[in-house]
Design a binder for these strands. Sequence first.
DNA 1: GCGACAG
DNA 2: ATCTTGTCGC
Length: 205
Amino acid sequence: MRWVAGADVATSRFSTWAWAGVVVLRYPDLQVVEEQYGSAELTFPYIPGLLAFREIPLLLDLFARLRHRPDLLLVDGQGVAHPRGLGLASHLGLLLEIPTIGCAKSRLCGYHATPGRKRGSSVSLRETGRTAGRAIGYVLRTKNGVRPVYVSVGHRISLRSAVRWTLACCRGYRLPEPTRQAHLLVNRLRRDAEGSPRCRIRAIG
DNA sequence: GCGACAG
DNA sequence: ATCTTGTCGC
């Protein structure tokens, strides 16, 4: 394992504009070695279960410019823990042919117990419906006392490895570094473009 | 019909 | 996702 990437998209509250970013970090020190980013108009609305159609176009453009070839990609969204078994992380991994992990901040589907409150504690996320009971992911506590994250297989990785790598990429924060850095990047871009909310009010008033 | 619902 | 300042807790 050498290059671990993270991807995220930030949206505007005023328009359909969005800022996307992909960061590549060196493992295991997790320092950012490359960033690719850009903004564009979103052409698809946010519909639970169809997030990939909204974010993938932007992210694919960024990966096309990437100088490093990631060994692993962590995505801010679900992998197979999806109603159709094909969340953003899985869809993206499939198109890029890169191993991916779905690392979402909240649940899309499935049910689960409450994991222990210590870092590393986890419980399985189980499918509902006819095939109820099958594990489709893990609800993992990445830091003591904070809300857990939803880890699921994205593409070309086992659930066990997905959980291990997610934990191995955490550095004291709730979100693993790849995803966290990507998140910081896109929000920085959005703020630079729109200005802070307070500034905006002062400009009007 | 009703409630749930990644970002 | 985005809004939004200070504040309670480890």
